[in-house]
Design a protein around this nucleic acid. Sequence first.
DNA 1: AACTAGAACAACCGCCAAAGC
DNA 2: AGCTTTGGCGGTTGTTCTAGT
Length: 288
Amino acid sequence: MGRRPCCAKEGLNRGIWTAGEDKILIDYIQAHGEGKWRDLPQRAGLKRCGKSCRLRWLNYLRPGIKRGNISMDEEELIIRLHNLLGNRWSLIAGRLPGRTDNEIKNHWNTNLSKKVQDQTHQNPVKLSNESEPQSEMLKEESPPRLETHPVIRTKAIRCTRVILPPPLLDQVASKATSVHNSNSETSSYSSSRQSNLSSDFLANFNIDDLLMSDQAQNLDSCFPPEGEKVDCYPSNFTLPMHDDAGCIRSEGLERWREDDEPFRTNGDFDFNSLASFLDSDDRFDLDE
DNA sequence: AACTAGAACAACCGCCAAAGC
DNA sequence: AGCTTTGGCGGTTGTTCTAGT
């Protein structure tokens, strides 16, 4: 017994969309709006799966989509964000106006993964391609804000996660678990940490729960002394949360909240703040 | 000009979480 | 509370394009 398919496959068109199909879809969505994807093909008169319609619209037909010619600036940002977020393409796409998760994923798989792999082999702690002059330039100048295209956001617009380097995750997990058990019904620690060591820098903590807990201060003991750098994959980077200390403390979390940094305690994840954050002096120092 | 291999890109698939009932 | 439906995500596959021989 398999899962029920999203739609009947018989009699449906597959493969590349024709200009006529695109027009029908655009006209229908302009008239009736997005949503109800399962019923949309029938109502619009398309011989396509609803999922296929949704994908076509979100990735290619939607207004504001940029196609092709991913710039060096964008590549640099993708690499940095991938370093932080792993294969969370929708989150990465959310930071690149006009780009879709599918395009970024394809570009990564065909270009950037190899590039990064090569650079990692050449120098394990350097993620930027320093042989290219434009990357040199980026070190001194902030990446331009790309405001002329809307950010393509699909589902991944909420984030209740805290970025932690892998060596600290396990330590924090045990602390956080006790916080969770005694305090919150919503906090949780992602078990994916065990299965995806390289990319999972994110622990599923609800920051408010941690801050409100009497035990939050116990988290301090997980982290290295102030000013001590964290040595971890893929490079040494300094955690940004507490002055120049390179360590996370509960008061650091508190300050982060007050400063309205990217991970807001109301659960919303602000990518513009993240971009500013990446550009700022407090960012993870990926180039060291 | 014809063929081939690899790159690039579009689309599909299965799984999952949230929403609705 | 539990089941169903819907929408979204990331991995993967299939097709087209392009450069090299």
